[in-house]
Amino acid sequence: MDYATALTVVESFMSEVKSSLANQEPVFLRGFGSFILKHRAEKTARNISRNTTVIVPEHDIPAFKPAKEFVASISKLKNI
């Protein structure tokens, strides 16, 4: 596979992951992991430079959770 083809495949995959997460749908890749949304509650933070309090609203953030098989295979490589 040449570079241009690989780039097209990866870019289209990431585009599908982004659109799925935008629609609140997780993406599962068996044996690799899951792209999910994590919900963060509203919190109070500090702006140190201005010495003020800022309210950070609740929001969702994208996250990746690796599959157990993937983690196990990486652990085996580390021990070699």
Rank of each mutant, 00 (worst) to 15 (best):
E69T: 13
T44F: 02
K43G: 06
P57A: 06
T44L: 11
F70K: 04
A67S: 14
G31P: 05
G31H: 09
E42N: 05
K38N: 11
F35I: 08
A72L: 14
S34A: 14
K68V: 13
R40Q: 07
F28Q: 12
P66D: 09
F28Y: 10
F70P: 06
V27P: 05
S49V: 11
D60E: 10
E25A: 07
P66R: 02
G31S: 09
G33W: 00
A41Q: 13
E25K: 15
G33N: 02
E58P: 10
N51H: 08
T44E: 12
P57L: 08
I74P: 00
N51M: 02
A45I: 09
H39V: 02
F28S: 12
V71M: 08
F64R: 07
H59R: 15
I55F: 05
K65D: 02
I36A: 06
R46S: 04
V27C: 03
F32Y: 11
L29M: 13
K38W: 04
G33A: 03
F70L: 14
F32E: 08
I74R: 06
H39Y: 07
D60P: 00
T53R: 12
T52L: 12
K65F: 03
F35W: 09
A63K: 11
N51G: 10
I48V: 11
P66G: 03
R40H: 09
T44A: 06
I36S: 01
A41M: 03
F32W: 08
S73P: 00
K68N: 10
S75E: 15
